[in-house]
Design a protein around this nucleic acid. Sequence first.
DNA 1: AAGATATGTAAAGCAAACATGACTTTTTGA
DNA 2: TCAAAAAGTCATGTTTGCTTTACATATCTT
Lengths: 66, 66
Amino acid sequence: MKNRLKVLRAERNWTQAQLAEALSVSRQTVNAIETGKFDPSLPLAFKAARVFGMPIEAIFQDEQEQ
Amino acid sequence: MKNRLKVLRAERNWTQAQLAEALSVSRQTVNAIETGKFDPSLPLAFKAARVFGMPIEAIFQDEQEQ
DNA sequence: AAGATATGTAAAGCAAACATGACTTTTTGA
DNA sequence: TCAAAAAGTCATGTTTGCTTTACATATCTT
């Protein structure tokens, strides 16, 4: 699962801490997701979609082509 | 998190077991998600979107309006 | 009535998604 | 240059997604 969080954050000049607060998760969680340590839960992905005002698919991409 | 899995299944005349196989999860997992016991992971939501040929938002709905 | 099929549910266990706290490294700006 | 801010990382703990096994119930056919 790839994601564009870092880019979307940069476009808005947000820090990981600011995004974390907008999503009501910890800064470490945002960092871990950005660096690919784990995938967000579905509810968190929905929150991100709401925060960025775009569909989930525009933020997260399934890299499993299978 | 609400979902339309039961309806989408019915439209296709699929059993929970058939959907489970298409998603490569257990039948109990499909049942638990349908009955709201827990939310699917993001990768599993992507799989469902691929199986049904529609965006994640057309299958799962965030009911938190907050 | 009896068997087959579909669904619901429960318990136990594992792995992944989070949390908190603390520390190090990198980037930034005055 | 140097300090502050941002980002990265590690350890530890809790919660939740998901598994397997097992059993109960409902419906449908024969």
